[in-house]
Each structure stands twice: as structure tokens, then as C-alpha cells.
Design a protein around this nucleic acid. Sequence first.
DNA 1: TGAAATGTTGGGGCG
DNA 2: ACGCCCCAACATTTC
Length: 449
Amino acid sequence: MLPLYILDDVNSGNWAMGGASRWWLHHSLAALNASLDGRLLVLRGDPLHLVPALAREVGASAVHWNRCYEPWRITRDKALKEALQQAGLAVHSHNGALLWEPWQVRKSDGTPYQVFTPYYRRGCLGSTPPRAPLPAPASLTLHWSAAAGQAGIDALALLPQIPWDGTMKATWHIGEAAALQRLQAFMAQGLAGYKEGRNFPQRPNVSRLSPHLHFGEVSPHQVWQAAQRAGLEQGVEEDLDCFQSELGWREFSHALLYDHPDLSETPLQRRFAHFPWQDDPALLRAWQRGMTGYPLVDAGMRELWQTGYMHNRVRMVVGSFLVKNLLTHWRHGEDWFWDCLVDADLAANSASWQWIAGCGADAAPYFRVFNPVTQSERFDPQGAYIRRYVPELAALPDKYLHDPASAPSQVLAAAGVTLGLTYPHPVVDLKASRERALAAFKQLQDSAP
DNA sequence: TGAAATGTTGGGGCG
DNA sequence: ACGCCCCAACATTTC
């Protein structure tokens, strides 16, 4: 057997892997290569040419891969399969990424679900339960190739030219072994209390498995089964259901992308094609850099920049802020997350931005506008998360930490904060921008129901 | 997986 | 004792 990874920047169109993901991929491939005794062959280029040529060269009789669900990959792999079969090879694709195949979860009339809850409850849970994880092969006979190993990984040039990855290195342990450790740690320390604790960015109740899942270091089948066991053992059925339904959202996103190949570019609700987005470049930049003057938003955007990750509650808050308060097109948020997230996943990223913008399937209603100050007071009451990522505000008392612009000038001075100098003034007024968004969204609602 | 405005209720201070 | 007002606490409505 010859284990092969190809970095494909040829067929990926607008969705070539982003910077943070490339960083993760480098370390993930290194770990995989090590576990294969340095025999992982790593190439870059067009698999449509590389795979048939390599198969000929080594005299392969069969090619196996795990299915990917990005539209450009489906197109590519279909063509590759045909080419290989015409050359007389057996081709086997497998499911290593999803608990339920998108084309198998259908309403009784055969059409796809549009709403998450029936999709998950009836469509997924009502059909066959997820299969158990497969055991590792007892033994592998690995083809020897002089071109295999770390040199091939280094040749992909996935690591940054300027070293922006210091905090990322300190944040993550990458690879299959690390993923399994994270899985065990979460089941032991995070699952109990998940339903409530998952909303608080400083609590240990989120799994942080998303990048491991995205890169296939752990399968959703392993995660599902581990949760099932731990949840029943610990008697925390409610937390278990809630956690598994989050895996369900991951499935739902993939199903949406499968049924709507333009999900990443085009609003599912057509009337949004004409929405009056403002798209002010200075405001977009303030959001990207974590300089909006709203501490929870800025903490989230800086967590993203420094670690390649953002807590889910905070993703909703910063997304709502960009799309509603700043009235910026969700595609800008999608692009930024795509480049910055180590867990960047086309299906989840696109579906989630459409969800928060209100133009997706089963989307957030247009009038749901998160107030970043209220959310901060509710979910980071002691300000631990804000103080970690917005240290210039650390000396402010809790009462004013969530909204420094509301603090009396003596309080700001005592904390060493000068608005406009050490920390930005708010880039928009929350009340006014909320009302502006509600008016714009309401008009869209009324004009084309 | 909202927030704000508006409505309702009931206790307590007070003339 | 009584009516009145205030306001907190909660519920409902609206966007």
C-alpha cells in the first residue's frame, strides 16, 4: 500500500485552503507521516494527472479514498474515478467524514429537509444509528518511495513566511494522538455540564475538536460513540443529547452544501440578492483586527487571529455584529473566517454565515440581533475572556469592562484607559445600528415575502 | 442559539 | 382603613 496526500490548489476555485488551515495541515501531515514510518507520499498539483500517473508507475490495482463533500471536490473526484476505471483500476471511496450520507437523509417525499430539528430528529436519529468506528488495520505493508516523507511535506510550503504562529503553536496539539487525547479529556471534564457551560467562553465545556474533525484526525463516529459511552456512564443524558445535536449541525451543514453547491457564494433565500449591504472597508478592518470598541467582539476577533479558533457563542456575537450592526455582507465574514480558522470547513462556515445573516435554511430570524454588551455581561460576567484577549482593559472594574464607553472618566483614567488612544471608541452606536438593521431587514421581508 | 418595549401584578410607603 | 403612587419583578408582545 502507498499512502498518498495531494495538496490540490488547482481545482479549488475560490476556496483554496486558508492560511491557518495550511499551518494546521503541515503539522497534521507531519504527525501522519510519523505514524506511517515516514512513508507518506505528499505531492502538490492536480490529482487528475498525478493519481493516474502514479498508479501506472507503481503498478497499483486499486485506489481508495475517503469522500469529501465540497462541490469542487465532488466534481474532481467523479472525473478521477472515471479516468482510473477506464485505465482498468478498481476505485473505492469510503465514508470517513459523516455520520449520515447527505443523499440518504430525505423527507418522505424524497426532498431534502430545510429545517434543522426535523432533519436531525426524524431524518438522522430516525434512520440507522451511526456505525461504530472501524478498528485500525492489524498490519500495513507500506510501499517504499524515495520521494516520501517529511521533505515532501516541507515542499508544500504550508508554514508562514513571517512567524505569526507563535500563539497557535502554544494553543494546539495536532495529529491523531493529540485528537484522541482531546476527545478523552473533553469526555472526562467537559461533557457533564455541556448544555449550560458551552455558552461561556472561559469554561471547559466545549470540545475544541472541530479542527481535528475537519482534518480527519478523529472521525465523527469516534466522537459520537465516545460521547454516548461517557454520557450514559455519567448519567448526563441532557448534556449528551445537546452535544450530539451539535454533531448533527455539522451533518446538516454538509447536507445543505451537498444540495446547494452554491451555498458558499449565494444566499439561499433569493431576495437577499438585493439586500442593501453597506460594506465600509474601514469598519470591516476594525472588525477583523478586533478594534470595534466592543470588548467581547474584539476579544473574539483577537482570539481568532491569535489562535485560529473562536468560541461558538462568540462566533455568533461577532457574526451578528458584522452583518447587522455594521450591515456588512456576510461573504466578507465568511472569507475572513476561511483564512483565519484552523477549523475552516466550507460546509460549516458557509451554512453558519448564512444562518447568522438570516438568508440561509432555518436561519436566525432577521430581528434576532445580539447585543454584544448584554451577551458579554451574561456569558463573561467576570470578564476572564475579555481580560485575556483585550489586556489593555484588564484593570477596568467588571461593571464597566463590557462597555468601556459607558464608564465615568475617572474610572477610565484609574484603569489606564484612554478611549481613542489605548482602546477604540465604539465604531457604531448599538441602538442606532440595531434600528437601522431592523428597518433594512424588515423592508426586505415586506417587499418579497 | 435575542432584545427592547409594553403590559401586569403586588407589596409597601404615604397622605 | 383606604386610595394612590411608585417600582421591582415577571410576563407578553413586537421587531
